[in-house]
Amino acid sequence: MSGGIFSDLPARIGVLMVEEGGRLSQWGEVVVDFLIACMMLVVNLFPDRIVEPFQYPFMQRALLTSILVGMVCGVLSCFVILKRWALLGDAISHAVLPGVAIAYLLGLPFFIGAFASGALTSLGIGVIERNTRIKEDAAMGIMFTAAFALGVVIISQIATSTHLMHILFGNVLGVRMPVLQLTLFAGIVTLFTVFLFYKELLLYTFDPVQASALGMNTTFIHYGLMLLLTLTIVASLETVGIILVVAMLIIPGATAYLLVNSLPRMMLIAAAVGIFSAIAGLYLSFVYNIASGGTIVIVAAGVFALAFLFSPHGVLVKILRHRTAVQEG
């Protein structure tokens, strides 16, 4: 009976997904263990006082997650800065909340729900902007506050305020294996996509009209970049939380923007700033027993402040130049 085949199709797909998911997560575990081992080889080179916190497995997982998040956020933050998407990053990160809540209700991995609601909101912003006279900033304001409010309401019904706090501000010390695997997966997908479509992304951010004249599908690139942003935000949720992730999507790129004049170098430096802030922030938060997400962002902001003062495009150079110009003139 053909009806029979179709009626148990969902069940079959379900079984298949569980089996494949199991196999994938086995592989994921192996990869994660390998990465942690490599990481610890490097960590153990440092003096004992610094190494000490990282003897705990939960700290090792937290460190790997933070490094991944710092790196991926760093790379994407360059596009956020150059496309002036800071507000969009903020919007998507808030819009992720109802997805997390709904996924929790349905028993799905929260990753999927967050991705769906983030993507839907960013598409919704585009729809409002293109079809009405409302401009982009207001469209974002409407969509992301509405989504965020919906998320807060749902969560207040189903979970404790600790849960809400973890989602909003991160809980990197409590990162477990499945979340770490998803972060790793999202990171690899994002970095690989940026590598494969570097030409398209560069020309689209620099001169979208020429990108279109060369036959590139700019709509596709636009939404593709938004989806990558969503994926990264979701992957960073557990580390720095919804509210602070936007900092990691702006500060590393902004810092690198002050230092160099080529996009590949900007991405490298932004990734380095992201990784450094993640490691230093995690360490300081452990030592002084303070909130890890907040500490990571404060370290990043400190690095930016240094660049702001001392970089070739920074304030000190400008003042010095001004002074010599006045003296000579």
Binding site: L82, F206, V209, Q210, L214, G215, S262, L263
Partner: peptide, 21 residues
Amino acid sequence: EQIDWDFPISVWDVVLAGRFG
């Protein structure tokens, strides 16, 4: 006016972008 002149890109890389197609 259509170009962001603060964009971190060199003369060579701008012209190279003409080859992307």
